[in-house]
Every structure is written in structure tokens, then in C-alpha cells.
Design a protein around this nucleic acid. Structure first.
Length: 263
DNA sequence: AACGCCGCCTGATCGC
DNA sequence: TGCGATCAGGCGGCGT
């Protein structure tokens, strides 16, 4: 599932290829993904617009467009979304959600589960916490937010208001790197643990971006080198203890029971 | 106000 | 072989 690193790799891939291109056609195959924007509104706004830049915020893709004035088309890949360029006459995938014609090529947004979005509604951005790879991700604010929460730290990390971009995979990975037990209530973390976690989050994300950047875009897996996620029963790379899987908030959490402790 | 829970979706996998 | 049940999960919305 695409989290911050996968989106970042995609943005770096698409940016140079899309910059300056003009949208000539808009095909909406699944209107749910553009909600609350209407198909009519999307067509009207995108038709003839030119791509200025492609950027990222948390797990969101921002297509900055211009036609008279600048505006943003907001993308989210949900669970199963993908975006890629194809020749204009290439066959469409079964679960194409939106296809933007760009002349010789088209930008395909496909999403088998249709959990994602491609919309003119940018309000979701207002609900995001700091970017973990930027200076705005401050230790003091992170610590304060954790002190106010009784939720298990793993569950809290999935909250995009705390910090933007972590999903189920990198929440587990960051906690492993910080050697923190995932079930610990957020407010029970001591200052040293909070500092380790604050440091581990960008490290884990940057490493994933680095590995992902070397893998071909469009692969089902981006080649992430995961230390705990989906590794139940396999030996921990640090201490060889068997990695455990537990369920928190209806999602799988993976951790090393020996390395990740209460201290 | 923070938190828990549900609904949205389809493909992969499993048991019979 | 085929079919139904189960699981995967990001996020908005709603109830407490």
C-alpha cells in the first residue's frame, strides 16, 4: 500500500514527465473517486489546463495546474491506487478510475478498490500534521501530542494529524527502529523513547525512498527493505527472536518482542 | 475532544 | 473445480 515513500518516488517520477504538459481530455470511469467534485466541474476545470508542478504532502499527490489561474488537483492512492503514463491508444486497465489525455500519452489513475481520490477538493490537506521530512516536524510538538493521548503508540502513529505520511507499514518499521513496543500508550513513552521515535520516523521514510527510487515505477512492490512488516515468525535482524504479529485497531502490527520494550 | 467503530471496495487466499 | 467466507486497510463520518 502506498505510503509517503511510495508517493514521493511516484512524484519524482511523474514531475519531470508531466511538467508543461496540457490536459486535452478527461475521462472519469468511477465518479466516486472525484467526489465531492462533479464530473462536469472536473472537465470544466482541467480541460486545457497546463501542469506546473507535481508535489507531495503526506500521502497526497498535488498536481499544480494553471489555466488563467493556478489551482490544485489532489490525488490519493488509497490502498491499491496507481498512476502512470501510457501511450494515448493503450488499452485501459479493468479498474481505471480517471484517465487524463495529454496528447501522445495519457495519465492513468487506476484503483481496484477505489479507496483513493483524484479531486479538486483540497480540504483534506488542512487536516494534516507536519511533514516528517521537513523542519516543521518538531520534537517538542510531537512530544506534547503524544503526552495527550492514551492510544497505543502504533495506532497513534497512523493518525495523519500527528504526523503526515505514515501508514501501517512504516508505523511498524519506525517503532522497530526506535525499539518501542507498539502497544504502549502514547503518553507512557519516556522522553528518550519519544526522541528516538521522532528521529526514527524520517530515517525509515528516507531509507524507503532511497530503495524505492532504484526500483521501476509501476511494480506491485517498490522493493522496500522491511525489517518487521509482514515478517511474522521470521527472525529479527538484530536479535534473531521471532517477529510477532498482533492486531491493533483492526490492523496488523509487526514487532520484535525482544528488541521493542517498555524502556 | 479523543477515541472507537463502521462502511466503502475488490482481489487473493483458504476451506470444504 | 467451484464457490462462499474471510482478510487486507486509509480515511471520513458518526456516535459516545
Amino acid at each position: 500500500m502506498p505510503e509517503l515513500p511510495e508517493v514521493e518516488v511516484l512524484v519524482r517520477h511523474l514531475g519531470p514527465r508531466l511538467k508543461g504538459r496540457c490536459i486535452q481530455s478527461v475521462a472519469v470511469r468511477r465518479s466516486r473517486v472525484i467526489a465531492p467534485t462533479s464530473e462536469r466541474a472536473l472537465r470544466g476545470r482541467l480541460g486545457g489546463a497546463r501542469l506546473v508542478t507535481v508535489a507531495r504532502r503526506g500521502k497526497y499527490l498535488l498536481f499544480v495546474l494553471r489555466r488563467k489561474t493556478e489551482f490544485t488537483l489532489l490525488g490519493h492512492l488509497g490502498m491499491s491506487g496507481r498512476m502512470y503514463l501510457r501511450p494515448i491508444n493503450a488499452a485501459e486497465p479493468k479498474h481505471a478510475a480517471v484517465v487524463l489525455g495529454l496528447g501522445k500519452e495519457k495519465l492513468v489513475y487506476e484503483d481496484p478498490r477505489y479507496f483513493g481520490r483524484l479531486t479538486l477538493d483540497t480540504r483534506p490537506l488542512e487536516r494534516l500534521g507536519p511533514e516528517p521530512l521537513s523542519k516543521e516536524f518538531k520534537l517538542a510538538e510531537f512530544a506534547q501530542a503524544l503526552r495527550r493521548s492514551s492510544q497505543a503508540i502504533k495506532v497513534k502513529l497512523l493518525n495523519q494529524r500527528l504526523v503526515a505520511g505514515l501508514g501501517n507499514i512504516y508505523a511498524s518499521e519506525a517503532l522497530f527502529r526506535a525499539r518501542i513496543a507498539p502497544a504502549m500508550p502514547a503518553r507512557k513513552l519516556n522522553p528518550a523513547q519519544i526522541a528516538r521515535l521522532h528521529r526514527a520516523i524520517p530515517v525509515v521514510l528516507k531509507r524507503a525512498i532511497r530503495f524505492g527510487s532504484t526500483i521501476a515505477i509501476g511494480q506491485p512492490k517498490y522493493g522496500e527493505r522491511l525489517l518487521v512488516y509482514d515478517r511474522a515468525g521470521l527472525p529479527c535482524g538484530v536479535c534473531r527472536a521471532a517477529i510477532k504479529r498482533i492486531v491493533q485497531a483492526a490492523r496488523s502490527t509487526y514487532y520484535c518482542p525482544r528488541c521493542q520494550t517498555k524502556h
